[in-house]
Amino acid sequence: MQSSSPLFLSTQTRSAWGLILPSLALFLAVVIIPLIMTVMLSFHDWGQYKGIETVFILKNWYEIWSDSYFHEMFARTFRIAVLVTFITMALGAPEAYILNRMRAPWKGVFLLVILGPLLISVVARTLGWALLFGGKNGVVNMALMKIGVIDAPLPFMFTETGVVIALSHVMMPFMVLSIWAALQKLDPQIENAALSLGASQLTVMRRIIFPQIMPGLLSGGIIVFSLAASAFATPAIIGGRRLKVAATLAYDEFLNTLNWPLGAAVAVLLLVALVIIVVSSNALIERRYKAVFE
């Protein structure tokens, strides 16, 4: 009965639209229009002395297409994003699993400790990494030299390695959260069921747990990838002025070089690439797991 009876006053679609209209208007005015203006901006011309010319040309797009500087920069952006995604998956999945098996007070405490950084300013967190990496007397290098892993300090600041480590830290809570959510849906008896059927602990992990947290792992991967590819503050602070990624390059074009059309083209390209990647991988995951997790 309940399923066939509609939601209360469902025929009055007008009242639904009345409630949503203010938000819709806001978004059309302040999200859609600016985005369209940005896309248009990417086709405008710019010169050192003439500024922005409102013409329609492909100059900026051609520049990105032909200049290997941009190829390198985009390759670096996505390389960093892929590495960060894999690192957060490799570390986040076991941690979420361990967390889930903890006892009552510790579970909550460590969940807070691991997810909490999500709400702490990314500038403050990245500053922490800058301090840990910093120069010869960075804490990380001192510690590594003390335990004898390395003889000379490794360069972290202004390197991709440093950016990847710091970004992995920044993105880790998203991954743990996503896998944690998948683990919560697991029947706690399912492990015991497998064990009672004679499976070893390792087999249980590989055959029972892992396939079930896969959707969480993948959706976490999509979130982390798209956020890492468009990250700004962390690459800007750790990567410095030399190690550019898409977001920091766009920032430079806008606020230092003042070549807005080129910056807009970089930003639009980043957005389009991310939308294509996210939407297609979402579709893939949904198709793959639809049957199991409807």
């Binding site: 940005t38 901006l41 468009s230 807009a264 639009v268 980043l270």
Partner: peptide
């Protein structure tokens, strides 16, 4: 989906779009 879209759009793109706007 539209109302949740600011989660999907990179903030750097939003920053640029707002600056332009």
């Amino acid at each position: 989906a539209l109302l949740l879209s600011p989660l999907m759009i990179p903030h750097v793109v939003l920053g640029i779009a707002f600056l332009r706007f």
